[in-house]
């Protein structure tokens, strides 16, 4: 199938899904207990019933749910995600501010976990019953079983007080310049701990997946053929077996993108990383519906974008999908 046409279809599907996401989230949030007008009143240090009623009118909370929904959908269609009660700022601006930080975190965690996980899996597949392989299995399970916030807190303790070599909160150091190479290094240093924390959970999964698929690939006929051709072992493994191992990893990496976001919420909270995750956390606490809805919407956008990218990578790796043979 024509590639451009294929992408177009994927995007069209994604748009349909996004509308569904908007409606569903809107209904879910309004079904949850809590009244934003009361929260705002609370923030103001208490208010009379008249003031609360005025707040409701100001934010359109006095209208029926259906009316609110259509008003909301209408404004989203024009790119307006409303005004945050809590942050007292337009939501679109808030999100635009936060998205880069989350993307840094999620993408570096993804890269770390895929690369290290695959490497560990590939090496342990060479001797599936060897010491290294068993070590990887145990560490993987530990990494997978430990809750991400706990791992985060432990790393924070370790590198914050026991062995303070890495920054443990925020994304930048106030004292450092905000431009040029120094700024990049600053962000990278701050990124190490949150990204590692988030990656640890997923390293476990990718190393297991890579190990199993590599063991499979190593017994495959085409690997025997490659050996029968007299190719050196690094070509047999690095070219013939590895690429076949990557197919399921790409699939899972695409599917995991949503989970990464979920993990990011906790990691960002633990490390005060100024991303969308923390925004979610804060907006839930404050019943800040417009912000929460927008964050959920943009998370969905990112997850769908990730799926489209996955699909393209998949085609790059596997020619059978390119020609629609499978």
């Amino acid at each position: 199938m024509n590639l451009a046409l294929h992408i177009l279809r994927q995007v069209a599907n994604a748009v349909g899904l996004l509308v569904a996401v908007l409606v569903l989230n809107f209904c879910l949030i309004h079904a949850a207990p809590g009244d934003p007008a009361l929260v705002i009143a609370g923030e103001m240090g208490g208010a009379s019933a008249d003031v609360i009623a005025a707040l409701r009118v100001k934010y359109g909370l006095d209208k029926s749910l259906i009316e609110q929904l259509f008003t909301y959908l209408g404004s989203v269609a024009t790119g307006d995600f409303g005004y945050s009660y809590y942050f007292n700022a337009p939501v679109t601006g808030l999100i635009a501010q936060r998205i880069p930080a989350t993307l840094y975190l999620v993408l570096s965690a993804l890269a770390i976990s895929v690369v290290i996980g695959t490497l560990l899996g590939v090496v342990s597949a060479r001797k599936p019953n060897g010491l290294f392989s068993q070590g990887v299995t145990v560490i993987s399970l530990a990494g997978y079983a430990a809750p991400v916030f706990w791992t985060g807190l432990m790393l924070l303790l370790l590198f914050g007080s026991v062995w303070p070599i890495l920054p443990v909160t925020g994304m930048t150091d106030v004292a450092r310049p905000k431009v040029g190479f120094a700024h990049v290094v600053d962000i990278l240093q701050h990124l190490v701990l949150p990204a590692t924390t988030l990656a640890l959970v997923f390293i476990a999964q990718y190393s297991r997946l890579a190990r199993v698929n590599m063991i499979d690939a190593l017994t495959a006929d085409y690997v025997r053929t490659a050996r029968a051709k007299g190719l050196p072992e690094f070509v047999v493994i690095g070219k013939h077996a590895l690429r076949n191992t990557l197919i399921p990893i790409v699939t899972v990496a695409g599917l995991q993108f949503g989970h990464l976001f979920a993990g990011a919420v906790l990691v960002e909270t633990v490390f005060s990383w100024p991303g969308m995750g923390r925004l979610v956390f804060e907006s839930i606490l404050r019943r800040d519906y417009p912000t929460l809805l927008a964050v959920l919407f943009f998370s969905a956008v990112l997850v769908m974008a990730a799926n489209i990218v996955t699909d393209l990578v998949y085609r790059l790796v596997d020619p059978r999908i390119r020609s629609g043979a499978r």
């Binding site: 051709k229 007299g230 059978r320």
Partner: peptide, 26 residues
């Protein structure tokens, strides 16, 4: 030495040509 023999001085064709060829390379 084996690598320099295989595919060069001795080579082999297998029973199942679908699985014996790597599906991901031309």
């Amino acid at each position: 030495e084996l690598r320099s023999l295989r595919g060069n001085k001795m080579s082999m064709i297998f029973q199942e040509p679908m699985t014996a060829l790597n599906p991901l390379y031309t």
